[in-house]
Amino acid sequence: MIFAAMDWHAFFFWMFALLTCGFALAVLFSNNVVHMAFYLILSLGASAGLFFLAGAEFVGAMQLMIYVGGTLVLVIFGVMLTAQSRFVSMETRSGEWVVALGVGGSLLFMLMITAFNVEDWRSPNPRQGEVTVAETQVVSQIGLGFAGVRVDKLDQPDGQLRGGMSGYLLPFVIVSIHLLVVLIGAAYMARTKRRKDVSGGRS
């Protein structure tokens, strides 16, 4: 719907882009852990808005659910671990700032030049107006893609690839098993055990 009017696309793009980048920078320059987590969530949420704008609804919703929800757990840990006020803010030494910003700035400069150097990337899509909303409604196609069936690639000339070779079944299974391993591993590592008696003492 938004794409019927290009100026709204540009408006929303810049709005979400500024929010994303602004809060990402706020994460960088804030020292308080909880503030950092808050900015991070806003930044991730705004980038979910960018995903919606690019027509990737499902990924946007997924971003909100898993990424932002996962970061929520980060906040909780932040709160729990920083109950003692000495952890709430940790200053970075100014020398580190100079080096990091120098390296980061030059990296950003390089990436920007690359992004705007490729002719194909900064030329408008000739058939942008023809893209219908139905074309971006791909939830079931994504689901079938994970099951190893690419219904979006039915016009694939190679018969071998059409038979399901181009699907994502194997990566999907690997990721599932990976998640299971991570779940067990994280639970094992984070379980309560007897603490070493550190001389610093604990509150």
Partner: peptide, 25 residues
């Protein structure tokens, strides 16, 4: 005005660099 892939790449680059600097500092 017309938004291209390059603009999205720019946002991605800013996030990437911010994250990298964040990890470093």
């Amino acid at each position: 005005e017309p938004i291209h892939v390059s603009h999205y790449l720019l946002v991605g680059a800013v996030m990437f660099v911010t994250g990298a600097v964040c990890m470093a500092t």
